[in-house]
Design a protein around this nucleic acid. Structure first.
Lengths: 113, 113
DNA sequence: TCCTTGGATCGATCAATGTCGAAACAGATT
DNA sequence: AATCTGTTTCGACATTGATCGATCCAAGGA
């Protein structure tokens, strides 16, 4: 059951949100996932296209394949991306809703006050 | 010298950004800073007002003052907030530009495709 | 001057994380 | 079935990070 991302709480940005402990916990997981240079680049590479084969990602880093796989799992567990196996290869794509929820949380900070 | 946050690279969001290793490094520091529930709540509390006295923050957490101070330092080092001492008390305020840069990086992911 | 109070820093401890190589797993090909 | 290739999982290790108590510093008040 792909949980529905019930993050309606992110309606008004950090500034307007008292941000319950639960929400803070959930959002922090996502921010933490993006809080690593490798994962941030991975996320950018995936977001740049509809979907990306892992086999196209690993060559772009000087890290063991298992390490890249680990980082992809962190992004997956955070709900930021999803994966799908087709034949031999595995393809990753972003979950736009998740990234957008984080964006909304940050955006209006200096906006309408 | 409050460094000028030269993050013009964040013009087009994750999707459009090849995201150089350097940029990834810089942004990751900020995301990582927000990647802790305590710090995320601190950031929200600070963003909710023009400025906030540390003395108003510490009572809202069941943590040692030194721990809160440490988390504030992480937010400060990431460039997300700034502090100013006035007499006995220290006041924190957000750096809207920094938060906004992160927001822009995330926002347009699912936007115009 | 000496205490008190608000904050930051330091040093120590324990948990979490990044990294790797080895092994396991899933499909495809022979 | 045997094997090859792409991907993930599994220990293991070194590094980082969260937390605390103790200490230090700055500003006020006795």
């Amino acid at each position: 059951m792909a949980r529905e991302l019930q993050i309606a709480d992110a309606c008004c940005g950090l500034a307007a949100t008292p941000l319950s402990e639960d929400d803070a916990e959930r959002f922090a997981v996502m921010f933490k996932a993006l809080g690593d240079p490798i994962r941030l680049r991975l996320a950018a590479l995936i977001a740049a296209q509809d979907e990306v084969c892992v086999c196209d990602l690993t060559p772009q880093f000087e890290l063991a394949d298992s390490t890249i796989s680990h980082h992809l799992k962190v992004l997956r567990d955070a709900g930021l991306v999803g994966s799908q196996r087709r034949g031999t290869w595995v393809y990753y794509r972003v979950h736009p809703d998740a990234l957008q929820a984080l964006g909304v949380l940050l955006q209006p900070v200096g906006g309408a006050d």
